[in-house]
Design a protein around this nucleic acid. Structure first.
Lengths: 338, 338
DNA sequence: GGTTATTATGGAAGCGCTTCCATTATAACA
DNA sequence: TGTTATAATGGAAGCGCTTCCATAATAACC
């Protein structure tokens, strides 16, 4: 049986209230008694029972994260940041992994009302208005990451600007035949998760083309389920077009990897024969010398926790939007067309 | 304010004990009153407070996982299995990510005594005897995954057998010049995490060579920090040996990927010029057509939770060892030597 | 040194549940 | 129908803490 506050109080010859005071180092404890209590704690190897503390505080001291596919590099990287930041705090972290939209809906319903978390971070999963209403009605603070809603806190990037940035880079290199390779653009049938980033990146792509006076060619936009394998197939399709593009903007580094492979298989040299740019700057991008748009994934996690902890301490504060910067990282997969 | 058991009791016109009975569906509740209580719960949108339940039960209803680098595919895949299995249960899951040996030691000390988990899963991090003693003294049940100690439950694979299996496959194809590419073999200075699998796989490799009467050549064993990049460098080194190997057994699929790249860079065809076999069968191995030794990573996670839940229900049961099967998966990166 | 302001301390209630124990309602039996 | 066995129910204690409130000890002041 672990020692309780009563054992400590008895050993130190004080009341339990005093022990509690040194635990929460509140004022008005004579330093001599504080030391006596601390000695007793050490002697008994006392650790306060977190459950009892939560019970008395009326808080769970726990933060939940709802994230899709924690196998994908970008999600895992954000999670790393979140975990690191939560570990520094007094909070525990519970991870809810979502692999189906049913699971998402179940968590969206049960987690806020379940009284098991004080705060919630949601990654990349846009809540509906009904969801948001429920979040607000429950007392849990919420921070969205990589998705947005005006009534909730959110850490985002400007995906449209990123798409524009990537496309402009290719245009500046002299490309005019630029393809966009992505996952399906927000078709709720094919994409039950309603991910939005590929759509906004697409809009940035379109905008950059328009600004440069380059007409959009629909055959240059190919989309399929998000995976390296599907991306490879799409890239093959693009490269075997009668008038193939000279550059491919992939909506994620994972998809850019598929494109790189397709190019190799078609005996095209990158970047001499075909330029390829990705998005995210996941770990492996450095290694592949992939030109990409860097978003600060790890830092996003840190910032999300920081904002959430702030909200926990200042309930009722207005929802904030934090937009993190993007950066073009030029490596070795983009060059002027021949 | 969320409704409490008192509100439900009052609304249903019963005592709180009765409400508690229907919550924990214990016997001896007349079905008519049960229905009345359930109706009241629904009307009040009542959800029992998990903290209070834990307090009363004297259990945390929480499982912890201590895992290194949850970015690496093999760890993430095991975690997925763990998360899926815990989500089915009444338990919450807390993830402790370890990126330094100090962090590991801190968690090994604090988690079992912190009264915040009932059970603990530890992935790939061998505890010292002192650690184990502390685990046993605390009341938390422990399950090791991918690491072993005779006093603790463990889900493992036979790494030596796996190493032998991989090497025998190459021998059977006719190879005699077989290299082993790994991370450092358990040198505590270079490898503060004391990972053991590469060492045992090495022993299996040595044994297979010996059984086939092939002398071991020390220049055929190259080791460096676990990464695709380092593995690529090591492979280059092997391939530029005066008498280079005709086959490389990489201690993990990640390292095998590095070897594949080195081969391509040296204009060697795989498997015609050089055979490469990996270990783990992570997701991407299928995609790369990599021959490998498959270990059931996801299932390992499921089994770990299953065993842990069993221990939680049967405290004092003797530590079990579960050895999961390995399987040679022949794809397209191994072939007879020229 | 006596009085009042201030600081230190202990007792007890309360957080929302489970469960033991005593009590009351129902069923079984003669 | 009267009696005992059994099922159903409510009250209250207790889980380990925090914190309010009252009291005791010390400091400050004239």
């Amino acid at each position: 049986m672990p020692a309780t506050i009563y054992h400590v109080a008895k050993k130190a010859g004080v009341g339990i209230a005093t022990v509690s005071r040194v635990l929460n180092n509140s004022a008005n404890v004579r330093s001599s008694t504080r030391e006596r209590v601390e000695a007793a704690m050490r002697a008994l190897d006392y650790h306060p029972n977190p459950i009892a503390q939560r019970m008395a505080f009326g808080k769970t001291l726990t933060i939940g994260v709802i994230t899709p596919f924690f196998t994908r590099p970008a999600f895992v990287e954000r999670l790393r940041g979140i975990e690191a930041s939560v570990a520094e705090s007094e909070y525990d972290l519970i991870v809810y992994n979502v692999e189906t939209s049913e699971k998402r809906d179940a968590y969206f319903r049960s987690v806020p009302t379940g009284q098991r978390v004080d705060g919630l971070i949601i990654i990349s999963l846009p809540p509906t208005n009904a969801d948001v209403e429920r979040f607000l009605k429950s007392k849990v603070s919420t921070v969205l990451v990589d998705t947005s809603h005006s009534a909730l806190n959110r850490i985002i990037i400007d995906d449209a600007a990123g798409g524009r940035m990537a496309t402009q880079h290719l245009i500046q290199l002299g490309h005019r035949k630029i393809a966009y390779l992505s996952d399906p653009l927000n078709d709720p049938l094919v994409s039950p998760f309603r991910f939005t980033s590929s759509l906004y990146r697409y809009q940035g792509y379109r905008q950059a083309l328009e600004e440069a006076g380059i007409p959009f060619r629909s055959e240059y936009h190919q989309a399929a389920e998000h995976s390296r394998y599907q991306a490879r197939l799409l890239a093959h399709k693009l490269l075997s077009l009668p008038d193939p593009p000279t550059a491919i903007f992939a909506a994620s580094d994972t998809q850019a990897m598929g494109a790189l492979e397709a190019a190799h298989e078609d005996s095209l040299k990158v970047p001499e024969d075909i330029s390829i740019i990705g998005f995210d700057d996941i770990e492996i991008a450095t290694y592949l010398h992939l030109t990409t748009i860097r978003q600060p994934l790890y830092e996003t996690g840190l910032r999300a926790v920081e904002l959430l902890l702030f909200c926990l301490e200042h309930p009722g504060s207005r929802p904030q939007e934090i937009v993190l910067p993007l950066e073009l990282v030029v490596r070795e997969t983009t060059a002027p067309p021949k």
